[in-house]
């Protein structure tokens, strides 16, 4: 672990290659970023602690539409470069194999408009660094009736299921690999991404969240915020753990971010880790 200006030890190596986040000053290798030192053969680089999201193929991400362009939407997913969702990689009503016509292009705003949130999968990474997404599955699509949280992307590890139904809390959670987390109350008969693009009329019919549902969402949201503030991994298991400790101590959702509960949570976590290590 190094900070900006720290000397990176290269005594063991005869010759070294200067990698990302480093600089040679007076023959010595110095870090220009805070982060972890990575050594691959002779290459020494620093992986920064906080960086923009770097996409990988097949990642599930949450993005916000920033622009409706010709035959595609531009999205903000917190990556370094442009992200686009082609009209041809969206499921349209009337069969997946249908040709995209000019009429479809005109009606693009009825599917996703500026400011909309949607879940999608990374389809391809181009050589210039731009990212293409797709929503070709019923589980992807527009997100409505819930709350969005931003956490550092590094805290969301790639896992088997990014769409989770927390049945005990009645909440659907989508963990975007880009550090956006979506929380919404689970509705009867609806899939994780509550509305697919093929059925936009469903979203309008959905009832607004009740007080109990809101309470549950805010509890889960605060649990995610708490985990993020402690730089702990965010997964369904860690979230439920926070909620369990919260319920044991009878802490209300609004008091979850107070210093006293954060202290209690840390205590509990350290005890759990001690037990597992024994």
């Amino acid at each position: 672990m190094v900070c900006v200006g720290d000397r990176i030890d290269t005594d063991m190596q005869e010759g070294f290659l200067r990698g990302h986040g480093t600089q040679v000053l007076d023959g010595q290798l110095v870090a220009t970023e805070c982060g972890l030192v990575e050594r691959v053969n002779k290459l020494v680089s620093v992986r920064p602690l906080r960086q923009r999201y770097s996409a990988a193929l097949g990642d599930i991400v949450i993005g916000r539409v920033t622009e409706v362009a010709g035959k595609r939407w531009r999205l903000d997913i917190g990556a370094r470069q442009e992200v686009s969702l082609q009209l041809s990689s969206v499921d349209l009503p009337g069969g997946a194999q249908r040709r995209r016509t000019a009429e479809d292009e005109i009606k693009m705003r009825t599917i996703f408009k500026e400011g909309d949130l949607l879940s999608a999968e990374v389809q391809s990474l181009h050589a210039d660094g731009s990212i293409a997404l797709h929503t070709r599955s019923a589980k992807y699509g527009k997100l409505t009736g819930g709350d969005l949280l931003y956490v550092p992307a590094a805290l969301v590890k790639r896992q088997k299921h990014h769409f989770t139904n927390l049945t005990t809390m009645g909440i659907t959670m989508i963990l975007g690999c880009n550090g956006m987390v979506w929380l919404a109350p689970t509705h009867e008969g609806s899939s994780a991404a509550a509305s697919s693009t093929s059925a936009p009329e469903q979203t309008a019919a959905k009832a607004p969240a009740s007080a109990a549902e809101r309470e549950a969402v805010s509890k889960a949201a605060n649990a995610v915020r708490l985990l993020a503030s402690l730089s702990m991994n965010i997964s369904p298991a860690s979230l439920l753990n926070v909620c369990k400790v919260c319920a044991e101590r009878g802490v209300q959702a609004k008091d979850m971010l107070t210093a006293s509960f954060i202290g209690a949570m840390l205590e509990e976590e350290s005890q759990q880790r001690l037990q597992t290590s024994l």
């Binding site: 909309d116 409505t144 809101r214 509890k219």
Partner: peptide, 18 residues
């Protein structure tokens, strides 16, 4: 949509962070 959710929270007296 997010605006609607947050505004609904104001009305229900339960905001995003409880």
């Amino acid at each position: 949509d997010e605006k609607d959710f947050i505004r609904g929270g104001f009305k229900a007296d339960i905001r995003s962070d409880g």
